[in-house]
Simulated assay, not measured.
Amino acid sequence: MRLLLDDMRGASQPHSLLSLIANGSNRLSEIAGRLGKPATSLTRPLANLIELGYIKRDHPFGENPRSTKKTIYRLKDPFLLFWYRVVLPNHSLLEQDLIDAVYAESQNNFKAQTAEIWEEMARKSTAHLNIANIRWKPGQRWWGNGRDGKNMEIDIIAESLNNAFLLFGEVKWEEKTNIKSTISKLKKSIVNFPKQTDKKIIMAVWCKNNKINKIKNEEYWIISPEDVLSRLK
């Protein structure tokens, strides 16, 4: 709260914005609805939070960031996200030193946040990894209606630096990932992707299971946490 008071005119509104975004209200209309305010009144406060590095503005791969209406807001810092999701809702319990109880009740939040941060790290890593002997731009998420008209999401899409290739990726954070099933799902998503292209497609899976680390073939590549961390250090 002191940081918000130092950086902005008041702490109440930015504090509310950060809390709502951290807990799943990611679109401007959702945030405005929860606060009971017109969306136009939040444009400047959100811009300030972006400028200060508290939040970021995401858009789907291939969309113009200046004109797209498909925008979501996300907290930029994992520690701040943890604070708003876990610490703040349990503040009174933590003050009573009920740390173990809060920890036990927050396991689902811990797992969800870990998976979310892993996915974000996977997208960042594309620009640092040499996948299929190709250099890539930073990855982005894509969401929208597929060619079949149904809503779908793709965890990672990235263009190669020479614009000749497209990388499609699936990100998993689980003890054992079924690679065959994951690749099958990814292939269906690629076929259903509405922005069809003549660029050559490369597929990759970012997953936790070290036993399948370094598996590569002509069809897909496997990326482990060690691969990602070694490139992002």
Results as ranks from 00 to 15, higher is better:
Gly169Arg: 01
Lys150Asp: 14
Asn133Gln: 14
Val171Thr: 01
Gln140Ala: 12
Gly139Leu: 08
Gly169Cys: 01
Lys176His: 10
Thr177Pro: 00
Gly169Tyr: 05
Lys176Asp: 07
Leu186Pro: 01
Gly149Val: 13
Asn145Trp: 03
Asn163Leu: 13
Lys172Thr: 03
Leu166Pro: 02
Leu161His: 06
Lys137Gly: 06
Lys180Gly: 03
Arg147Tyr: 00
Leu167Thr: 07
Arg141Gly: 10
Glu170His: 02
Asp148Tyr: 09
Ala127Asn: 07
Ile131Tyr: 03
Lys180Cys: 00
Thr182Tyr: 09
Asn133His: 12
Ile183Ser: 05
Leu129Ala: 04
Met152Gly: 08
His128Gln: 10
Glu174Asn: 00
Ala132His: 12
Gly149Asp: 12
Trp142Gly: 06
Glu153Ile: 09
Ile157Cys: 05
Glu159Arg: 11
Lys180Thr: 09
Lys176Gly: 04
Glu174Ala: 04
Glu174Gln: 12
Lys150His: 15
Asn162Cys: 14
Lys188Pro: 00
Arg147Gln: 10
Met152Phe: 13
Leu186Gly: 03
Lys172Ala: 03
Lys172Asn: 01
His128Ser: 10
Gly146Leu: 13
Leu186Thr: 00
Asn163Asp: 15
Trp143Cys: 11
Asn178Trp: 04
Lys188Asp: 03
Lys185Ala: 11
Asn178Ile: 03
Ser181Met: 11
Leu161Ser: 05
Thr177Trp: 01
Ile154Arg: 01
Leu167Met: 09
Asn162Thr: 13
Lys188Cys: 00
Ala164Tyr: 10
Glu174Arg: 05
Ala132Asp: 15
Ala158Gly: 11
His128Lys: 13
Asn163Gln: 13
Leu129Thr: 04
Asn163Ala: 12
Glu159Gln: 13
Glu153Val: 12
Lys188Ser: 08
Asn151Leu: 08
Lys150Phe: 14
Asn130Ala: 10
Arg141Val: 10
Gly146Ser: 12
Arg135Gly: 04
Asp155Pro: 00
Ile157Phe: 09
Ala158Ile: 12
Ser184Thr: 13
Asn151Val: 05
Asn162Pro: 09
Glu175Phe: 01
Gly144Ala: 08
Asp148Ile: 06
Ala164Cys: 12
Glu174Leu: 04
Trp136Leu: 08
Thr182Gly: 05
Ser184Ile: 06
Trp142Asp: 07
Ile131Gly: 02
Arg135Val: 02
Lys180His: 06
Gly139Lys: 03
Ser181Cys: 01
Phe165Cys: 07
